[in-house]
Design a protein around this nucleic acid. Structure first.
Length: 646
RNA sequence: GCCACUGUGGCUUAGAGGUAUAGCGUCGCCUUGGUAAGGCGAAGGUCGGGGGUUCAAUUCCCCCCAGUGGCUCCA
């Protein structure tokens, strides 16, 4: 007999050799929702045999670990279906991911029709209720089993004996190298759906084999799956590309080129509001503004290090009669030259140089997406020149600035990431390991001091230094960098940055902080539209008041209202066409004005307006003067939520 | 750049080897209307572009271009 601790201080006696699953069934019942078990805190299969005193707890399907197991098992189910339908397909790796799983296969590309067939086969395998069994095997047998799959062999070369262990999981005719655990029956995998295919490279290396990646989503219940499908629908409704078109914010034209959005009049208004807010804020934070050219000589970018380290991100050079010129991909080299243009004293530092600079980046055509990834972008850029002692204060103030912006714009879902260099990939970075270590540790200490949570990411640094990135998610769950604060230890040498210190000596220890809290106009607007589903705060709305007349005799009064609002600086439009009022309301909803003002006999008589909010709520007979002062306050305070109609 | 899918009047879309739907929008007339489709009428498309197969291609094939989702990359 063994004693099994079943949690909450209780223990039960069982015959030695009982499975973890039987204990869970005995304690928690048949419908516990468990997919696997923790045995002494280790994840184990339900079939795991207990032969000594231990602690057993269920891993529920809707827990983080449980979802992971479910999705991992679903990936195996996919691989089983694929290898049945395509005997030549070679499974490589298939991990669980946020909403499901994927599996990469070496096989010929497949389309939607094939995807449906594979999904159908998976459903059949679920119906057959195949048991999934763990097999402990030695390396020899594993090599024998996977002898025709070079990918699995390569995994074994790298990992066996480490975290993969020497185990495999068998379900019917399919066996996969895996450390587990897994669910015990294919019938436990009911709520899944294959979503898409894509091309991927073996080990994410574009010089290696091209693989077919199949994505699926998987949930423990029908509700979970339905909820995710609903989320995807909601995401489509908030898509900045759809909203941007409806609101007439920007266009992209083939003849101009892809990734090169044109800001239309309403988009230009939105962009200007954001930029004015940035200028105001940076003024308060002690920044000086400059404007630098969009192109510069080859030697400039050689000096900065962009040409050796960032050449693929830049457009090819233009040959002129006096040398080669490049479109700039970054503003920093020019700002550095602004810094060196004058003799600087320690009394001047930190010097903060700001510019909404437009840069050009040669993004791969396949990565371009609406406003989120473009080839010409206007960055909320600035560079802070300071001593090492001043770095912490400046970084902290930039984190604070970013957070103040997020508060005003209504963003509350973001993560900090400390982006580090990759010592194994030195080509991408300036090769000064001790500087990397020092600056990375410095940023880490600053972050720890701020008490914010963050993750660390190797290989995400800029070529000239580590950075703090603030990561957002698009409505579809894709992660993108929004803000960035980068610590540059290389510019001082490359550009000979220096200042006169307290001792009267030239001091070259100038650190540069590159920062862009508001990202770029393009990306920021995309996130803003998704955040608000296009229903922007009043101060950002391209149309703040849309006047709608009821009949022709209200035209003069509407004109009167328009003039009054315009004088107060409110962006106002009048629709005095002879359409019905219902129709006019319906039409103008698309451009999402902050408020609609309905004007008829009652309003004309009383010198008032009837305010209609975006959600259809209405406040009638508001004196015009009252509305003007209320909306003026909302605009000048940059109020987040619209509040003139309760 | 790579893989898959998609591309029909300004927008959303139907269709299929015989040059094509419908709704919204636009324009005109009627309606002067109180809160998410008032009525009638008209204009508007060489079905993304170019080749090929065919008596005939928007439909089938090939090559481009663009969009979408991924890969890679990144603000």
């Amino acid at each position: 007999m063994i004693s099994v601790d079943i949690g909450e201080g209780e223990s039960h006696e069982y015959a030695s050799g009982i499975s973890a699953g039987e204990v869970i069934k005995n304690v928690h019942g048949r419908k516990s929702g468990a997919v696997a078990a923790f045995v002494n805190g280790e994840e184990r299969d339900m079939s795991f045999r207990l032969d000594e005193n231990c602690k057993v707890e269920p891993i529920l399907g809707d827990s983080e670990e449980g979802l992971y197991i479910l999705r991992h098992s679903c990936a195996h189910l996919l691989a089983q279906a694929v290898t049945q339908l395509y005997p030549d397909a070679k499974p490589t790796i298939g991990p669980p991911i946020e909403h499901g799983f994927y599996y990469d296969f070496a096989m010929d590309p497949i389309g939607d029709e094939e995807l449906r067939q594979i999904e159908k086969r998976m459903k059949e395998l679920v119906k057959q209720n195949i048991s999934i069994e763990r097999e402990e095997l030695d390396n020899e047998s594993l090599r024998e089993i996977f002898s025709s799959n070079p990918f699995k062999l390569e995994i074994m070369d790298d990992k066996i004996g480490h975290d993969v262990g020497s185990s495999a999981y068998r379900q019917g005719d399919f066996i996969d190298l895996c450390k587990g655990p897994h669910v015990s029956l294919t019938s436990q995998l009911r709520w899944f759906k294959l979503t898409s295919t894509s091309q991927a490279y073996w080990r994410a290396d574009k010089d290696r084999e091209s693989l077919v990646r199949i994505y699926g989503m998987c949930y423990p219940s029908k509700d979970g799956l339905k909820e995710r499908e609903r989320q995807i629908q909601e995401a489509a409704r908030r898509d900045h590309k759809k909203i941007g078109k409806e609101m007439g914010l920007y266009m992209i034209n083939d003849l101009i080129g892809k990734g090169l959005p044109v800001w239309l009049p309403y988009g230009e208004i939105l962009k200007s509001e954001i930029e004015n807010f940035a200028i105001e804020t940076e003024e308060a934070y002690g920044y000086d503004r400059v404007t630098t050219p969009v192109l510069g000589k080859k030697e400039l970018f050689e000096t900065s290090g962009h040409l050796p380290h960032y050449a693929e991100g830049m457009y090819p050079p233009m040959k002129m009669d006096d040398g080669e010129y490049y479109l700039k991909a970054m503003n920093c080299p020019m700002h550095h030259l602004v810094f060196t243009n004058s003799k600087r004293s320690y009394r001047d530092l930190p010097i903060r140089i700001a510019e909404y600079g437009t840069v050009y980046r040669n993004e791969l055509s396949g990565t371009l997406a609406g406003l989120l990834r473009v080839r010409m972008l206007s960055m909320n850029d600035a560079h802070v020149y300071c001593t090492l002692d001043q770095v912490a204060t400046e970084v902290r103030s930039n984190v604070r600035m970013a957070q103040e912006y997020y508060e005003t714009f209504g963003f509350d879902d973001y993560d900090f990431r400390l982006s580090l260099w990759d010592p194994d990939n030195k080509d991408k970075y300036i090769d000064q390991p001790e500087n990397w270590e020092a600056t990375q540790n410095h940023l880490r200490e600053i972050m720890d001091g701020l008490g914010v949570e963050y993750t660390e990411a190797v290989g995400e640094a800029a070529f000239y230094g580590p950075k703090i990135d603030i990561q957002f998610r698009t409505v579809l769950g894709r992660e993108e960098s929004m803000s960035t604060i980068q610590l540059d230890f290389a510019a001082k040498e490359r550009f000979g940055l220096s200042y006169m210190d307290e001792t009267g000596n030239e001091n070259g220890e100038v650190f540069v902080i590159h920062r862009a809290p508001l990202s770029t106009h393009e990306r920021f607007v995309a996130f803003l539209l998704e955040q608000w589903a296009g229903n922007l705060p009043t101060w950002l709305s391209p149309v703040q008041a849309q006047v709608i007349t009821i009949s022709e005799r209200h035209k003069d009064y509407a004109e009167n209202v328009r003039e009054t609002l315009k004088i107060a600086g409110v962006r106002v439009k009048v629709d005095d066409s002879d359409n019905t009022i219902g129709k006019k309301i319906r039409m103008h909803r698309k451009s999402r004005p902050a408020y609609m003002l309905i004007l008829g006999d009652d309003e004309m008589k009383g010198g008032s307006v009837s305010i209609r909010s975006r959600n259809g709520k209405q406040k009638n007979g508001v004196p015009l003067e009252q509305f003007v002062s209320d909306i003026f306050a909302e605009i000048s305070n940059r109020t987040k939520d619209l509040s003139l109609v309760e």
